[in-house]
């Protein structure tokens, strides 16, 4: 089956969906909705010979308030590559599970749930796969999650940032001279930066 023939067939079967050839030969794209995507994928798998689900990826469209799910399917028989795209609401994102079509879609959906917060009712396991179990933030691949802020707050706390060098010196040194040296380094640092860390502490308190 050539791409043109496939596009023709797809348009015939799914008149409501957009079927677009992509720039690269052998690639096409079907834009559909959440309610029809299982039908499209079933048709692709059973009738059109797309036997391989490569991946399910997610895209966060912050301005549109939507999350896009992209199902990448490939046909080894026809050497065709098809992307099936759907968009779901960002505030209440969910989609139908397809782990009955391709069993390995289960961890992909688990990952999408983990990183975008999209829920798949019926998926047997949506626990945390990659993120630590203590994770209590927004799904990290959403655009409104700020990794820099998270990293700075958790891994570089204020007290450590201001005392970075001193803490390591304090841990290395023993005896009474440790405090004297730390004090001098601290004063030196205050002179360089123009403000003393002690004053910072007072100001905050």
């Amino acid at each position: 089956m050539t791409r043109d023939r496939l596009i023709e067939l797809a348009k015939q079967f799914f008149p409501e969906d957009e079927v677009i050839p992509r720039k690269k030969p052998g690639e096409l794209e079907i834009r559909t909705t959440r309610d029809r995507v299982v039908g499209v994928l079933t048709w692709l798998q059973n009738e059109a010979g797309f036997d391989h689900l490569m991946y399910i990826s997610g895209v966060d469209w912050l301005e549109d308030g939507e999350i896009e799910l992209v199902y990448h399917v490939y046909s080894y028989d026809h050497k065709l590559y098809c992307m099936v795209k759907i968009r779901v609401d960002r505030d209440y994102p969910w989609a139908h599970t397809i782990h009955k079509l391709w069993a390995h879609a289960q961890p992909y959906e688990q990952e999408i749930h983990e990183f975008f917060g999209v829920y798949f009712p019926g998926n047997p396991d949506l626990s945390h796969l990659i993120l630590p179990p203590e994770w209590s933030e927004a799904p990290p691949l959403r655009k409104d999650f700020d990794p820099l802020e998270y990293s700075m707050k958790l891994y570089e706390p204020e007290w450590f940032k201001s005392t970075d060098t001193f803490a390591s010196i304090a841990n290395r040194l023993r005896g009474e001279e440790a405090e004297r040296i730390i004090r001098s380094v601290l004063n030196e640092s205050a002179r360089l930066h123009g403000d003393a860390p002690e004053k910072d502490g007072e100001g905050e308190a």
Binding site: F160, T163, N171, R174, G175
Partner: peptide, 12 residues
């Protein structure tokens, strides 16, 4: 400043 942990043990 009290966050810095200074070991005050004698040098072994």
């Amino acid at each position: 400043m009290d966050e810095i942990y200074i070991t005050n043990l004698e040098k072994e």
